[in-house]
Structure formats: C-alpha cells, structure tokens
C-alpha cells in the first residue's frame, strides 16, 4: 500500500532512520567488543594497574599520621575513590585510539563511504564501548577494594558513583575522540595520553587531600576535573550521600556535592560543543 499522507510518510521515514541508526551503531559497537574479546590484554591491564596501585599505595601510606586524612579513614579507603576515577579517566582518555587506528589504516573510509543514517553512529559506538569498559573496570576496583576490607557504598552511593563516572567518562571520551581527529597519528595521541595521565592524577585529590598539598598544587587540584569526580565517590564510600555537604575545601572556597556534579556536567556539555564542529567537519 502506498502511503500518501505526508505526515505519515515523514513519521515512517524517521522510524526507518532510527532503525537504520540502531543497526549501524550496534554493529559498530559489536565490532569494538569483538576486538576486546579477542585482545583482552588492554582490559586486564586497565584493571590490573590500578589494583597494583591500590595494594602498593595503601601499604606505603598505611602508617601515615592519623590526622593526615579527613574523617579518620584508612589510606586504603581514601585511595579507593581516587583509583576508581583514575581507571575511568585512563580508559576514556584512550577512547580515541581505535578511531585513530581506523583513520590511519583506512577503515574509517570504509565507514564513511557507507550510507550511514548518521555518522554520529561512529562516535556513539565508541562512547558506548568506552563507557561500558570504564564502568566494568571501575566496578572491578570496587569489588577488589571491598575484598581488601575497604567497604562498599550503599545503593544510593552506587548510583551516585555511576552518575559521576558517566559524566567524567563522557567528557574525557569526547575530548579523546576530538584529539583522534585533530592529531596526525597515533604516536602523537599516545604521547598526549602519556603526558596527561599521571600528572592529572597527581594533581588531584586521588592520592592525598588538598590540605596535605602545597598551596600551588592545592589550587591545581581544586580545579582539576578528577577532583570533582573523586570527592562525590569518596563521599559515597562513607555511606552518607548528602550532595549538600561540602566535599572540597578549595583555596577559592567550599564546593558541595551538587556543585561537583554540576561542574562535571558543564565540562561534558562544554567539551561536546567544543568538539562537535570538529566532528561535523571531519565526518561530513
């Protein structure tokens, strides 16, 4: 039967577009997961590295003075939140690598010559993949730290952790995908990942509270996006999910839980608008 009603046709077309987009996005995401299943070393390394950190750093600072940490928690408890965020951050920072390899080896051209319903599918599949992996790795850290006796957050806390990680992962994945299109090759991208990874960790509250840092480092840590993700998660581990509570005593003032999440949201949206024209141009 031929549909003559223009609004019905339009609706049918948009439904087709949606189905097509779902088909291509799920196929592209599945491809990334097949790669992971057949080359699981990156997944294991992503989990193993923070676990080693958890064990070594927790042991290293186990005899730190009792007033060193806020709330009298053990260093292992303190460190857990930092490593969860660091794991998600590292994973998201690597998000651009598969795309960069697709650019370099010409596979991206195969995708671009196909009549994709929307070329956003290429980016969306990367975001879905990296988000899943980052969450998986983070939950592996949480499970290990629970086994080490550093406790588990409540259900509300888990929800808060998931929201916080999602915001951070979206933001950093967007940044990494943007870099994958701007930089000339994977060597440059890997160099940036190397340069950014550890300094960003050390210049956050992942390993030590702001009060323990020199003033200049305290300033950097207070504007570091990782800090805004770490502190809500640290709060979730203390089983008191109160977003009105002050989480960061920054040199410029106090920052509560809502503000931390709002800053992460602004960062995510800001980065999205920043890289969107670039992605539109590169994927046009």
């Amino acid at each position: 039967m031929i549909t003559t009603n223009p609004s019905l046709q339009k609706e049918k077309q948009s439904r087709n577009d949606l189905n097509e987009m779902l088909q291509e996005t799920s196929a592209l995401t599945w491809r990334l997961f097949i790669q992971l299943i057949r080359r699981p070393s990156t997944l294991f390394a992503g989990i193993l590295q923070p676990l080693i950190w958890l064990l070594l750093f927790a042991a290293l600072f186990s005899k730190a003075p009792i007033d060193f940490l806020p709330g009298g928690s053990s260093y292992g408890e303190f460190l857990g939140a930092g490593l969860i965020v660091f794991t998600a951050f590292s994973g998201a920072l690597n998000a651009g690598l598969p795309l960069m390899f697709d650019r370099e080896f010409g596979f991206l051209n195969r995708l671009l010559v196909a009549p994709l319903s929307s070329r956003s599918s290429i980016v969306i599949s990367s975001v879905i993949y990296i988000t899943s992996i980052s969450l998986l790795q983070s939950f592996a850290i949480m499970a290990t730290s629970a086994l080490l006796g550093y406790g588990l957050p409540s259900l509300g806390g888990l929800f808060l952790i998931a929201i916080t990680l999602l915001l951070l992962v979206f933001a950093i994945t967007g940044l990494s995908l943007g870099l994958a299109f701007v930089l000339p090759g994977h060597i440059e991208l890997i160099a940036i990942i190397f340069i950014a990874n550890l300094p960003v960790l050390f210049a956050s509250t992942a390993l030590a509270p702001i009060s323990f840092m020199p003033e200049w480092l305290g300033w950097i840590a207070s504007i570091n996006p990782l800090t805004f993700a770490i502190e809500p998660i640290r709060m979730a581990y203390q089983n008191s999910v109160d977003l009105n509570a002050v989480l960061i005593n920054a040199p410029y003032g106090e920052v509560n839980g809502y503000s931390c999440l709002a800053i992460l949201l602004i960062l995510t949206v800001g980065l999205f608008f920043l890289i969107r024209p670039l992605l539109n141009r590169k994927l046009a």
Binding site: N19, E20, Q23, E24, S26, A27, L28, W30, R31, I34, Q35, R38, R39, F105, G106, F107, N109, R110, L111, V113, A114, P115, L116, S117
Partner: peptide, 29 residues
C-alpha cells in the same frame, strides 16, 4: 548506489572475513 573497493585494502585484522561482511551489511542496512 555505489560500492567502493579502495586501493589500500582496509580490513579489521581482528574480525573474521564473515564478520567483516556482516558488519558491512549492517552499515548498508
């Protein structure tokens, strides 16, 4: 309307040949 076979063959080394064709089929809906 077109099929393109590029000069430098761009294939995903991790996928099997059949999986690559399946992916291609999904990209063409």
């Amino acid at each position: 309307r077109l099929g393109y076979v590029a000069q430098d063959v761009a294939i995903d080394k991790i996928l099997t040949g059949r999986e690559l064709l399946q992916l291609q089929g999904d990209l063409y809906h």
